[in-house]
Design a protein around this nucleic acid. Structure first.
Lengths: 109, 109
DNA sequence: CTCGACTATTCTGTGTTGCTATGTACCAGT
DNA sequence: ACTGGTACATAGCAACACAGAATAGTCGAG
C-alpha cells in the first residue's frame, strides 16, 4: 500500500500492537509476520521493534526473554495493567474518530 | 483531548478536511471553527492552514480569494477532480484500517 | 483616536512517529 | 563455507500536528 496508510498508522499502530498483546503475549518477529499476514503488507521490521521499545519504556508491557530453538532468544511481551488502561483509552479515542468520520462519510454522499 | 488524538490525526486530518470540502467550498478559519464545534476541541489553527497549503500544492483543491465584510480576504478552497479521487482513496484506506481494528476489538474481548 | 475584540492568514521551531537501510547473532541444510 | 530463515537493534530521514507569535483588516467602546 501507499503512503496514506503510513501516515494513518502513526498513532494507531501502537494501539494495534497493544490490542494484539491483549489477546496473548507475543514477540516482535511474530507480530510483524502476523501484521503482514493481515494485509499490512509493508510494515517494516524495525518499526515494530522501535515501537516495542517505546511501549516497554512507558511501562505498558512486561518482558520475558525466552530461548528459541531457531535463532537468537525471543523477547516476549505481555500487556500489564497499565497497558490495558492505555489500550482502553486508545479505543475511546478511536471510537471518537470513527464516529466523526462516519458522519462525514454519510454527509458527503 | 490528549496526545492520542494528535497522533491519530496524522494522516486522517487531511482526509477529514477533504471530506468537508467535498460537501461545499470553505476557508481555513471556517473549517477550524467547524472542527472545534464537532468536538476536535484543540485543533490548532496553524495546523489547518498548513494542511490547506499542502493540499493546494498537491493540486487537490482550487483556490479563490474572496473579500470579507469583516477582516482580511478569505481564501476559499474547493475540491477539484484530482482531490475527489484522492478522497476516494482516502476512504478506501480508512475502510481497510477500520476493518482490521474492528476485528482486533472483537477478538480482544 | 486609540484600544481592544473579532476575523483571517502565515510562519518558525519542536516532538512524535514510521520508514529506509544496515548490522548483529544464531542455527540448519547443502 | 554458503545460503536462508529466525530474531533483534539502531542511526538518519521525512511527514505531520502543535505551540506560539506575528501580521492584517474591520468595527465598536471609551
Amino acid at each position: 500500500m501507499g503512503k496514506q496508510v503510513t501516515e494513518m498508522l502513526k498513532g494507531t499502530l501502537e494501539g494495534i500492537v497493544l490490542a494484539i498483546l491483549s489477546g496473548r503475549p507475543a514477540y516482535g518477529y511474530e507480530i510483524t509476520a502476523w501484521l503482514r499476514d493481515q494485509g499490512f503488507s509493508d510494515i517494516a521490521e524495525g518499526t515494530i521493534y522501535a515501537l516495542l521499545v517505546r511501549i516497554e519504556q512507558r511501562g505498558f508491557v512486561d518482558v520475558e526473554k525466552v530461548p528459541s530453538e531457531k535463532g537468537p532468544p525471543r523477547k516476549v511481551f505481555s500487556l500489564n495493567a497499565q497497558g490495558r488502561e492505555h489500550l482502553d483509552e486508545f479505543w475511546r479515542t478511536w471510537s471518537f474518530l470513527t464516529e466523526r468520520l462516519e458522519q462525514l462519510r454519510e454527509g458527503g454522499k
